[in-house]
């Protein structure tokens, strides 16, 4: 296996919190150009796994490699774009325009004591256009809808031209009608711009048709394979994967593409 083909490699990873295992024996690899969805119920350790990959917390055991490099030595954070669950890390009364928010995505790449150049202004505007928010350049971020804000945050992640884009539950707070066009936008980014995508969600139904790979997580990694393989699993297998009683709810197909997983 050539390590250069893999953007993320996780080996035998354990993470404990308050003496309890949050993650056990996790193995995961993300190939360049793929679109991976990590699915799992609430409390399954999805967000923890993301935090570990971003280096925000450290595992007690195991290895994480980013772009072939050990995470502790990894210095090219600008190669990774991150869109968090907007609700918990953002003050909607903050007086910043869409342009200013997206510009802040260049902070690390520009480096200390450097200012925005003209070429950066062009890049910022392009990133805003690419998520369909060109009309809102000078709007305050708090005046936008949840879905629009989420697009702005994706533009912020895109502006530093990352090779890997990580999204944590990006459709929370996005109204149902807009979820499909949102996933469509992600597909375009993946196929046309060649950005590797990692999406964390509890929304199994909608994503399996858009992504290339699926990983099912619930403390352990219960499944890790291609989207086709995942499709072939029956609903019963899915609940088995999750290790406990799971209901796969099917919503009205008029306004929703598939099912939700609840625990």
């Amino acid at each position: 296996m050539d390590t250069n083909d893999y953007i993320v490699q996780v080996q035998d990873l354990y993470y404990r919190y308050d003496k309890e295992n949050v993650l056990e024996n996790i193995n995961l690899s993300i190939k360049k150009g793929s679109f991976l969805a990590i699915v799992g119920p609430n409390g399954s350790g999805k967000s923890t796994l993301l935090k570990l990959m971003l280096g925000l917390i450290k595992p007690q055991q195991g290895l994480i490699r980013l772009f072939g490099q050990d995470i502790n030595k990894f210095k090219e954070q600008h190669k990774i774009g991150f869109v968090s669950q907007k609700a918990n890390s953002f003050n909607t009364g903050f007086p910043a325009t869409v342009f200013e928010v997206v510009a802040s995505g260049l902070t690390k790449k520009l480096g200390l004591f450097n200012f925005l150049r003209k070429t950066d202004h062009v890049k910022i505007k392009q990133a805003i256009e690419s998520v369909g928010m060109g009309k809102f350049l000078d709007r305050n971020i708090g005046e936008l809808s949840g879905g629009q804000q989420q697009r702005v945050f994706i533009a912020r992640a895109l502006v530093s031209e990352p090779e890997l884009l990580i999204l944590d539950e990006p459709t929370v707070g996005v109204d149902v009608q807009n979820v499909n066009s949102f996933y469509g936008m992600l597909e375009t980014l993946n196929k046309e711009k060649g950005i590797t995508l990692l999406l964390v969600t509890h929304d199994i139904g909608t994503i399996s048709e858009k992504v290339t790979n699926v990983a099912c997580l619930n403390k352990n990694m219960h499944f890790h394979g291609s989207a086709e393989e995942f499709e072939q699993l029956k609903i019963n297998d899915v609940s088995e994967i999750y290790g406990h009683d799971v209901h796969v709810l099917t919503h009205d197909h008029h306004h929703h593409g598939g099912g939700h997983l609840h625990d």
Binding site: K75, Q77, H78, F82, L112, F113
Partner: peptide
């Protein structure tokens, strides 16, 4: 002035600032 963009990011979204290595 020199730390403007870093201070802005820290104020706007501390988690993101940390995640990007500030």
């Amino acid at each position: 002035v020199l730390l403007y963009k870093e201070l802005f990011l820290l104020s706007f979204d501390e988690e993101y600032a940390r995640a990007t290595g500030i």
